[in-house]
Nucleic acid binder design. Structure first.
Lengths: 183, 183
DNA sequence: CTATATCTATGACGAGCGTCATAGCAACTG
DNA sequence: CAGTTGCTATGACGCTCGTCATAGATATAG
């Protein structure tokens, strides 16, 4: 089975989350994953664009998976469960890590619009699942969507603030405010 | 007077806002600003690091200036005035533009921590001014700070979502939710 | 045990980057 | 007019990047 391919994608996702796409070179990915250099264009014939896309999809799927593992039965706990993932990542990385999707979205130039489309898909899928979970615990549909998008935006922004600040404080602050939106 | 220097900084700020720091080369800055290539290390002897820092400070100061030009007398209007700037930028750029500070913060690698410090300063100065403006219209101090940080995080995140989505919708959604926080 | 597909290894390529040295030009000072 | 200072012009440097060709290793299947 293709073990080193998975490692490469995982490393790329992690590195791009904490330094953006452009600052993540193949050399970095290989060093971090321990994968052999020669395998790059065997596993990713379309080059870096393809590796980036895979890293984005992996990240997106991992987040969706975490969300689906929720057993929340109130609006507060739906949000708390979503936020917990990011809270954990920030703490574990000492506020160095960020979001892969954001790291790509910001770095992308006008010519590779397909990566932007992948980012759009990712954000949209999170928003729609989060929104659905909120409606299932009684939040009105339109409001649920607004809160879902606001939550995602706040988290993405908070990850940036946390990185600049070197602390989790921004994330904890948005958590309290987001919760007050559903009370 | 150093006209081309100002243009370089302005171009760098703009470009880094919409494609991050690493994807913004000196060639891009020169092409965009029309500045002569030879002037780079005359005006910025410390190289790209210095140009980046100047671009960040310019952006930060412009935002502070806009905030200070507010004559808002309610919490809602304080937030609305702050948000209007970003709303305008997104619309004017067809959702391509982002924030210079975020574009640097995400791209920076572990070794140049001083740029992270500049980002921290920028975010902190926005947060403290916004917080101050909120307290002056009657919001309780601790709540004011939480709302200020949440607003900034939401905006930064929304800029990313807007870019991915190709629309202003995410920004308008967070606007409505932020306003409901102060009602 | 051979054959066939999958993965790894090594290294070279052209391009673009940030950097910088050096020289020419402008413009103001005394 | 002479001289000093500030800006522009040109181009080369070393490096790293993404890309790719080619060949060797490994394993799975008949």
């Amino acid at each position: 089975m293709s073990d080193s391919r998975d490692k490469m994608v995982q490393s790329a996702a992690s590195l791009m989350g904490s330094r953006g796409m452009n600052a993540t070179s193949f050399s970095d990915v290989l060093a971090d994953s321990g994968a052999p250099r020669g395998s790059i264009y065997h596993h990713f014939p379309e080059g870096k664009r393809q590796l980036t896309e895979c890293a984005m999809r992996l990240t997106s799927d991992q987040i969706l998976e975490h969300m689906r593992a929720s057993s929340a039965d109130t609006a507060e706990s739906v949000l708390t469960h979503f936020l917990a993932l990011f809270h954990h990542v920030v703490v574990a990385s000492h506020a160095r890590a960020g979001c892969t999707i954001a790291g790509v979205t910001i770095d992308v130039t006008d010519d590779d619009d397909d990566l932007l489309a992948v980012a759009k898909d990712a954000f949209a899928s999170w928003a729609s699942l989060l929104s659905e979970q909120l409606t299932q615990v009684g939040v009105e549909k339109k409001k649920a969507r607004a809160i879902a998008v606001t939550t995602i935006a706040s988290v993405e922004g908070a990850l940036i603030l946390c990185r600049a600040d070197g602390s989790v404080e921004p994330l904890t602050l948005i958590e309290s405010q987001l919760l007050s939106l559903v009370r």
